[in-house]
Design a protein around this nucleic acid. Structure first.
Lengths: 200, 200, 200, 200
DNA sequence: TATGAATGAGCTTTCATTCAT
DNA sequence: TATGAATGAAAGCTCATTCAT
């Protein structure tokens, strides 16, 4: 006899398999170069099954990007909490550095999610409070600390947004296009800029 | 009697027509949604003629982006020279503001060239000295002035690069995604960040 | 109710229809003059269906040639066995004559498969033992008999090869190009040559 | 002042250049893979000029094959006359061996002209008495000698035709397809077959 | 004679999506 | 839920040939 939970698991299994197959193929072949056919063959399910769980190729990509981005940000936040400093600006630098180092080792993931690694995503990730309660707490701590420095809440949000845009855009350019050079020689200037932006 | 120049003009005419048709279609329908068929029909030439002048759809896009970006940058530089201030940081702000305002009125162009409006492109534009001699002069003036402020040449290049990335990325996000809000309420913070980055 | 076999049959039906359409069109219009479009229209299936069953136009041609060649050779072998003589050389002549007569009535087929009607094909046909068990038996009998005549196995293979090349090439020339004349006035000389080659 | 002959030479020059370019490209890229565009670019003339001298791509191929085949046959005949033996069958073997050895060193040429290297071509070559007077003399000698052996003229022509077909077809198969093996291990059997056919 | 820009029908191939089972 | 055969519009691109100059 099979329990309801087992059926649900079995059902979920195909979805998970499709998700993983799509992820691997997008990373290795690229999004445009991957056909639905490739995904279902890799996942070992029928073509129709794909459309049972996902609207289309862009649907699975979006979900993939959200999932992977959340993971990276969560990791970065956890790492920052572990190494927590007194100076909140330095915590920000640690957070940024973790993300940069992560993508240095996962360039293909960076390529895939680049266009969506932004404040918007960050916000979406923070909103999913059921999954990331802890993130929310941390976020509040960050906000609190900047307020103490004399920033308004609007200023904080906009500055964080700008920093996210700056960092992701520079990281992408250095790691993927090697423009204007390698990320390591860029880091001091980037961190410097971040520090300046965050200083009243 | 038809002069050699006229023949050459006639020849060029089709290329120009293709260029314009592609530009309009890319803007209105989007790049992926525009077929070569659409371009040649709009230009009123045969399909083969397209391949006489362009390698493929990406070739015409690249040339389009380069051409339009150069134009915007040139305009911005000219405008900056006209309104030239004593303070070079303020000149930079004027330059940036011009570009932002330009794209505020040409959102679809921004969408099209976003991924390529970067320092790399700027550099390519500057390199075309025959076309943009004046730009080169201005660039030298800028470099000279920052050196006086105590920046090394490396610092200048990297900071300008970061500012370009920051500005383009924030402009795109605000104008196209309206994220985290409208560009006008972002501007003060953005300009503030730029000023901080450019201050020793 | 539809059995599994019926579903499979239905599936196969389109492939068979494509096969037949391609065969007729190749015969009547020629290979190069036949477009995939022509084939699918004639078969009454969608273009994509063609690529479900065949890699490309050359794939269907190859399979067509193999199938038709096997058929002719099989018929010729069966006919030879029916009219079997004591003298093995005469059996060979009967075999050859059957093939010549066959193509006399199917000149367009000869045109289509000529380049591939060779010892290589013959060997491939013989190898398909599951489909042509009887052919294998006959082949063994032939080999056995020539060995008795004092030929080495190497000699037999090479002589059979040469005869196949000679016959197919002369048949093609006479039937298709009428060069140097009609096949019937060529036959005595051709058979004579074959007899000489097969005589120690 | 330019003489009529010079103009004619100049005119001929482009034709010759086209001929040579086509030959090299057909050999190196293959006939189907060579576009008229490739030929005219290589020859350094305009596209329209091609159609001034040749009907189409097949026209230039035909002329190429005829020209090159005549050359090979002429060389083979000259070589045979030099090494002339008393036995006319052995002269035939020398003639055949020369052609085989020639193509062993020019496999790509063999590939190109194979379908047309036949008795028909041989006859066409012999017919061009103005260009190949000597060939005609030799041909007559051959005919004379076989008549002495008791062959009718019809028998001679048909046997020579069969031998040409046999040799070219076997040579092609061995050299290009390596089927059923290399040409050198085939030669003894081939020459043996030729001798048998030519023996009353 | 010579040019070469222009043609445009034609090609093969892809692939997201559907739907009867 | 799950299948996978079938679809067919649409894509990018080629190239022999023409013709005004």
């Amino acid at each position: 006899m099979v329990s309801t939970k087992d059926i649900s698991s079995k059902k979920r299994l195909k979805q998970v398999k499709l998700f993983e197959s799509a992820f691997n193929l997008f990373l290795n072949k690229g999004f445009n170069e991957t056909a639905i056919d490739d995904i279902v063959k890799d996942a070992g399910v029928a073509k129709g099954t794909f459309y049972l769980y996902f609207k289309d190729k862009y649907d699975i990509l979006d979900r993939l990007i959200l999932s992977k981005s959340c993971m990276v940000i969560k990791e970065a936040l956890e790492n920052t909490r572990e190494k927590q400093q007194d100076d909140f600006i330095e915590n920000m630098i640690i957070f940024i550095d973790y993300i940069i180092e992560y993508f240095k080792n996962n360039k293909r993931l960076l390529k895939l999610i680049y266009k969506n690694l932004s404040w918007g995503l960050f916000r979406r990730a923070l909103v999913r409070q059921d999954e990331y309660e802890e993130m929310n707490n941390l976020k509040n701590i960050i906000l609190e600390n900047f307020k103490n420095k004399g920033f308004t809440e609007d200023e904080i949000e906009k500055n964080i947004f700008m920093i996210m845009e700056l960092v992701s855009s520079v990281t992408y350019s250095c790691l993927i296009l090697n423009e204007p050079g390698d990320i390591d020689s860029m880091k001091p200037h980037l961190f410097n800029a971040v520090r300046k932006i965050l200083t009243k």
